[in-house]
Design a protein around this nucleic acid. Structure first.
Ligand SMILES: [Zn+2]
Ligand SMILES: [Zn+2]
Ligand SMILES: [Zn+2]
Ligand SMILES: [Zn+2]
Lengths: 124, 124
DNA sequence: CCATTTTTGACAACCATTTTCGTTTTCGCG
DNA sequence: CGCGAAAACGAAAATGGTTGTCAAAAATGG
């Protein structure tokens, strides 16, 4: 793990919710780093490949990344206002997805689940 | 509904699984239509706004569209080889998502769920 | 018909991401 | 150390899906 890559990891870990590559690049530059945008992309690619960070696409196609507290399979409920994310475990939904797959003759079933809402703070 | 827009709708309805705007454009041109790419995008935008088609982003950021048999809320299980999609109803997952939201104090809870697998055909 | 509005499509602009490539840093080993 | 290979880096250019622009074409309706 190079110094640059570690910096990207920390920038991501130190923020809550999803951040885009451009966001993280701006953050790092703002705090004085001379890192290049290309390197931010490479670091995020590596972190994503190794499963250390979660990546998904926003509705407008931008890739956003998130460092989770645990590396085991789980999901999130995300506030659509402040983007705060709570990690949730879901035996129910895991079982449901597996059953759906079996029922329709699909093998190696995986799934993506995202839950959105307005958090207690933001709905006040 | 203009003729062009209707043509896009039919091109989408007539194919199974998710199709990109560029795919549909190529199809329409191949069958002799003089439609422009811009119009395809505009038609898909309109169809998506009206809830007639489903849109999601692939892992590489491309928007893909699908005409569903029903307009009510449902999910899909998609073959990762041939992209065939089966529509599934899930009271279980609907309830689960709502409960998760309530449990953490979130309001107006929505969710996105996609299930992937290898279909019976493709796993032979 | 004519005036007004809507739709269309060629082309340019956009912008996140990837590629390229020459430079810099790191690493292994004598 | 010293030195050569290998990896990491960053600036700039290229890529590619999508959106904006704008003048022409088509529908509308009086
Ligand atoms: Zn919030
Ligand atoms: Zn799960
Ligand atoms: Zn299949
Ligand atoms: Zn649902």
């Amino acid at each position: 793990m190079s110094t640059r890559r570690e910096a990207v990891r920390q920038a991501l870990t130190g923020s809550s919710g999803f951040r885009s590559a451009q966001d993280l690049y701006a953050d790092l530059r703002a705090e004085g780093s001379k890192i290049g945008l290309t390197t931010v992309y490479r670091a995020l690619q590596a972190l994503s490949d190794s499963g250390e960070v979660d990546v998904l696409r926003t509705d407008d196609g931008e890739a956003v990344y998130r460092a989770c507290d645990t590396e085991s399979h789980h999901h999130h409920i995300v506030c659509r206002v402040c983007a705060t994310a709570v990690e949730i475990e879901g035996p129910t939904v895991e079982k449901w997805a597996a059953e759906m797959g079996a029922q329709h003759g699909f093998r190696d079933v995986t799934h993506t689940v995202e839950v959105f809402g307005t958090c207690a703070n933001c709905s006040r």
